[in-house]
Computed example of a mutant assay.
Amino acid sequence: MPSPIPPTRLLPKDLFPSADISVCSSPLQQRGLGATLQVPPQRLHGKLGSRPWSSVIHWQQLRCVEAVGSGGFGSVYRAEYLGQTVALKKVKRRSKNRLASRQSFWAELNAAHLSHRNVVRVLAASTCVPADFQDEGSIGAIVMEFVGSRNLQQVIYESPEPLEEARCLRFSSDMAEALRFLHAHLLVHLDVKPPNVLLSPGGVCKLADFGCSLQLERERAPSSISPLLSHGCGTYSHRAPELLRGQPVTPKADIFSLGITMWQLLTREPPYTGDRQHVLYAVVARDLRPSLSHAVFASAQGRRRAELLGRCWSAEVRRRPSAEELLELLRSA
């Protein structure tokens, strides 16, 4: 099954570091990249919340406190930086696909210049990682706001606390708000799923992990998709069928993924069972979707929820609501 994301669609060609660039150089500092990726002047005083993001990490001011997560991408730590609690993400070099590792690292910075209540904010990033901060051959590190150690995956599947309808609605609205903001800036996340939605102590959802994200071009439509990164991006259970077919990326791919995530919130069950390849085939060829015969969809309100989910994961991209339309539908629910 082809992957939806080729290397050239993750970032402009200019942003790919060539083999002869030193470990401390940053593609964001290369010439000719346009205003949106220019690194603002440093401000080392005052609170981190008021600082622009930086392409330099002041390692002497950074102290790891504890590990809070790890995976194929690397490791995340709670840390102290310039007097405040932050999250430090060390992106590791994948031995089997080093190009994918670099693409993932630079894609993480697609939202670095943006700030929104429901998006985890990037504070600093660097490809120059000192030896005492290395973690499994890190190719780079990113300092982000520290939201907490809980994500929606844990809330849905590992917590005994109830997920009442009002709470599900609030979480869904938070994710739709994040996507509305990102899509307005022509940024597509492409990996919306419960583990990538962090939950603050105040119960606010924040979308994280932009390693699969794509900055769309305003001037022309996206080009055709090539099948080069067969396992490098996205999660098969949440991936839109048009991407599996190798068709162009649009913001509606995120709406499909959000629909699957909303179903998980409502049912607290995995969306599919069975072999990965069989699921992928069925999603594309047989319009397989999570079951809407669950008890939570039996009431009149539940049937309206089911109808909304059906629109979000429709095989016809044009039938899916935009993030803004989805937000309005959730507010009126």
Rank of each mutant, 00 (worst) to 15 (best):
H116I: 03
L329V: 03
M262E: 00
A333L: 10
N97T: 05
H278F: 04
S293W: 04
D191E: 05
G74F: 05
L15I: 06
T8N: 15
Q247N: 12
L265R: 00
M262P: 00
D209I: 06
P4L: 15
C212F: 02
R43A: 14
R268K: 13
H185L: 02
S159T: 14
Q60V: 07
A306D: 04
A178Q: 09
L216F: 10
K90A: 13
W106F: 15
G83W: 09
A176F: 09
A333T: 05
E80A: 10
W106M: 11
G49T: 05
A208Y: 07
D174H: 15
G274R: 12
P6S: 15
S299W: 05
H58W: 14
T261Y: 00
E328P: 01
D132F: 07
D254L: 06
K252T: 07
G72V: 04
V296T: 06
L326Y: 09
V188A: 13
S55A: 15
V68P: 02
R311T: 03
Y236N: 02
R268F: 06
P222F: 14
V296S: 02
E136M: 13
S138N: 05
V143S: 10
A111D: 00
D191V: 03
S173F: 03
A300T: 11
A107D: 03
K47W: 08
L327P: 09
E164V: 11
L114E: 10
F16Y: 15
G46W: 08
L114Y: 11
H189Q: 08
H238V: 01
R320Y: 09
L187D: 03
I21G: 01
P52G: 07
L292H: 01
S173Y: 06
Q134V: 01
P271K: 08
R276H: 12
N118Q: 14
R150S: 04
P160Y: 13
H294G: 03
Q42R: 14
